[in-house]
Every structure is written in C-alpha cells, then in structure tokens.
Amino acid sequence: MKLNIAKPLLLSSLMLLTPSLWADSYKIDTEGAHASVEFKIKHLGYSWLVGRFNTFDGEFNYDAATPGDATVNVTIDTTSIDSNHAERDKHLRGKDFLNVAKFPKAEFNSQSFTDLGDGKATLIGELTLHGVTKAVTIDVVKIGEGQDPWGGYRLGFEGTTSIALKDFGIDYNLGPASTHVELTLNVEGIKQ
C-alpha cells in the first residue's frame, strides 16, 4: 500500500521541479507564411542588400508565468536563400559564402531566455552556420498573442541580432562596411 502512495507523490514532486514541462508548446507558422527569417548587409557602405531564407521550421515553448524556462529551436534550409537576384543567390550558395552543398542547414537552439519586462527579452543560444557553432544573443520583442479566427491560439515575437561573417568561417572580402549581417526573425507560433 505504501508503494502505491509513494509513486504518485514522487511523480508529483518531479513535475513541480520541471516547470518547463508545463510551458505551452508552439509550432512556428511557416505553412501559412506568418513567420520569416530575414537578413541585411551593407553593400559597400552605400545601401542595404536584403534577403530572406524561404524555407525553415521550428518550435518554441513559452509560459508567461515562467518566461525563463522558454526554449526555441529553429532549422533553416540554407539552399533557400533569396536576395531577389538569381546570380547573386548562386554566389551566396557557393563556397565563398554558405557552401550549401556541404552545409545545407543552419540551426539555432536556445540556452537561456531573460524577460526584461515591457514585452522585451534577451534570448541566448547556439547558432550553427557554415559548420561553425557560436553563441549569439538575440534581442526579443513580444508582438502579441491571442485567439485566431480558426479557434487556435497564437503568440508572436520579433528577434534581432548581428553576426560577424568571420565568426562563422565566411571570410570573403566584401569591404570594411560589410563584415556583419543583421538578422531579423519574425516568429508567429500556433499553440499545439
């Protein structure tokens, strides 16, 4: 009889110790094109070259009561890079830049999420790009949340960061004004 009582008590105790298990799980809405991974880099210091990755997938867990337990995982198909110029995209896919034949995917896996208040947060995680894994810090802004017209629940964030190309083994000389790429992730998740 004591064993039958001990098991539920042990299970209840374990559940209390792992609050992230209770966080809501969200699938990033790439199917409905309500999310994007965009980039921009200065062109010779005179203008911005902008683009996006058309194919990616991911999910996140988030609970407003315990935001520090939030997790984010995103996988990007680097072959889907799109700067609205076919010849440039071919060059970006080649060995000078992404080398998609060897590195067809990039990944981001979060390590910590710090709520700063007023809908702002800092997300730290590991970005694997071009075969190199480095820690990156993403500035996060909560866009909104609520019921959608189809009976689901959605939650959206925007994240921005800047990465040095050389940190990820991309050392093609674009000039001194073009050493960093700014990334913007617009994420709308559907509660699962």
Rank of each mutant, 00 (worst) to 15 (best):
M1V: 14
N4Y: 14
N4W: 12
L9Q: 13
L9I: 12
L14R: 11
L16F: 09
L17P: 04
P19T: 08
L21C: 09
L21V: 08
W22T: 12
A23N: 13
S25N: 15
S25V: 11
I28C: 10
G32H: 05
G32F: 00
S36I: 01
F39V: 07
F39Y: 13
K40R: 14
K40E: 14
H43D: 10
Y46E: 06
S47P: 07
S47Y: 02
S47N: 12
W48N: 15
V50L: 13
V50S: 15
N54I: 03
T55I: 11
F56P: 06
F56Q: 01
F60K: 08
D63V: 05
A65M: 06
P67M: 03
G68A: 09
D69P: 01
D69I: 02
A70Y: 00
T71V: 08
T71F: 04
N73S: 15
V74M: 03
T79R: 10
I81D: 03
D82V: 00
D82R: 03
D82C: 05
S83Y: 00
S83A: 14
H85Y: 03
H91L: 09
R93L: 08
D96G: 11
D96K: 10
D96F: 02
L98P: 05
A101C: 07
A101P: 02
K102Q: 14
K102P: 06
F103S: 10
P104C: 09
K105R: 14
A106M: 06
A106P: 03
E107V: 09
F108V: 04
S110I: 10
S110R: 03
Q111M: 10
S112N: 11
F113R: 06
D115Y: 03
D115F: 00
D115Q: 04
G119Y: 04
K120H: 13
G125E: 04
E126R: 09
E126Q: 14
L129M: 08
H130F: 01
T133M: 05
V136L: 00
T137Y: 02
T137N: 09
T137Q: 13
I138C: 05
I138V: 14
I138K: 01
V140M: 07
V141D: 14
V141H: 07
I143V: 15
G144R: 02
E145P: 03
G146S: 05
Q147A: 15
Q147K: 14
Q147I: 00
Q147V: 08
D148I: 04
P149H: 05
W150L: 10
G151E: 02
G151L: 00
G152K: 07
Y153F: 12
G156W: 01
G156S: 15
G156M: 05
E158G: 13
E158D: 15
G159M: 05
T160C: 10
T160S: 14
S162P: 02
I170Y: 06
I170D: 12
Y172T: 15
Y172D: 12
G175K: 05
P176L: 10
P176Y: 07
A177M: 11
A177G: 12
S178P: 03
T179H: 07
V181W: 07
E182T: 15
E182H: 12
L183W: 00
L185Y: 04
L185V: 13
V187A: 14
G189S: 11
K191G: 10
Q192S: 15
Q192C: 08
Q192P: 07
